[in-house]
């Protein structure tokens, strides 16, 4: 026990590139990505500060300030973080600043707490490196909402097996001349067929399936609009049960595959319960 009000002296101030510091930072990044359900995954850019405190009875607490940068993978996208492309500054990237505490015990890192603030790069900084690059737009802007609805309508018009509903608008950019709107949004397939949807609210989302879409709406000079939509749909497929020794009955119930909204591609990532296969579904210009 220590007297109240007496701060615990730090054990040491390690290098920010110390291997343990990096492992603690990576554990914190994983924690952050697992605990926000909107927007994109972040990846570690830099460790700003590191301090280590002793923890009783055992262990050490790493108190870190870390800089994160946005990737192009949505947090619901099962793609491993290592395979996610970092969002380039020319795309008006978002950064995150986090204060985290990570406990190290028995060579295992466990995040105790994390507090993060995210903010887009300044428009001036984007302009410096790319004068004509589109800047981020508010997600609730009427032009953005219209562009997403038009892109989703175009995608659903392709008559996939299922009707897709909008789950989240995750990104939007206006071109400098305001003549086109670029959007990224998340969709979810439903139990409705595209051709007989009267009330979308009555369609129920299928579990463990999401479409990650990009759409561009361009206003034509003579009136009218061009819409382009591209979606990557991840479909959950049941995992193959591990072979059981003779005489031992599997505790798993029968695998009942839900009909995927789109045919599943080859598995690329395996988790404890499901394997996920991506399928690129491209919608040409409409």
């Amino acid at each position: 026990a220590r007297s109240p009000g007496v701060p615990v002296a730090p054990v040491r101030d390690p290098d920010c590139d110390d291997l343990d510091v990096e492992q603690a930072a990576l554990a914190a990044v994983q924690y952050v990505n697992n605990n926000h359900k909107h927007g994109y995954k972040y990846t570690l850019n830099q460790v700003d500060k590191a301090r280590v405190y002793q923890r009783r009875p055992t262990g050490e607490v790493y108190v870190l300030e870390i800089d994160l940068v946005e990737t192009c993978c949505h947090v619901l996208d099962p793609t491993p973080l290592e395979n996610c492309t970092v969002r380039q500054l020319t795309e008006h990237a978002v950064e995150g600043d986090c204060d985290v505490s990570v406990l190290k015990v028995d060579n295992q890192f466990m995040v105790l707490n994390a507090k993060c603030e995210s903010s887009p790069d300044s428009a001036e900084d984007v302009r410096k490196i790319c004068p004509n690059c589109p800047l981020l737009a508010p997600l609730n802007d009427t032009k953005v909402v219209h562009a997403v609805e038009a892109a989703l309508t175009a995608f659903n018009a392709q008559k996939h097996n299922n009707y897709f509903k909008l789950q989240e608008i995750s990104r939007a950019q206006f071109s400098p001349l305001q003549s086109s709107v670029y959007t990224e949004f998340v969709t979810v397939p439903t139990d409705c067929k595209p051709i007989d949807v009267i009330d979308p609210a009555a369609c129920n989302p299928l579990p463990n399936q999401h479409g990650f879409c990009k759409g561009t709406l361009t206003e034509k000079v003579g009136g009218g609009e061009d819409v382009v939509a591209t979606c990557t749909v991840f479909v959950a497929v049941p995992a193959v049960p591990a072979p059981q020794p003779d005489g031992i009955e599997s505790s798993l119930g029968p695998a009942v595959p839900a009909e995927p909204a789109v045919p599943a591609g080859p598995p690329v990532a395996a988790g404890p319960a499901v394997a996920l296969g991506p399928l690129l579904v491209d919608a040409p210009a409409v």
């Binding site: 290098d15 920010c16 590139d17 990096e22 570690l44 850019n45 700003d48 500060k49 940068v69």
Partner: peptide
């Protein structure tokens, strides 16, 4: 006789290397 010169003196205190390396780009 030549008086011994000053020794190397105490080692400079180690300076923690922070912030660490930038993995992607400077923000």
């Amino acid at each position: 006789p030549v008086a011994p010169g000053p020794g190397p003196g105490p080692a400079a205190p180690a300076i923690p290397l922070c912030p660490g390396r930038i993995r992607h780009f400077k923000i």
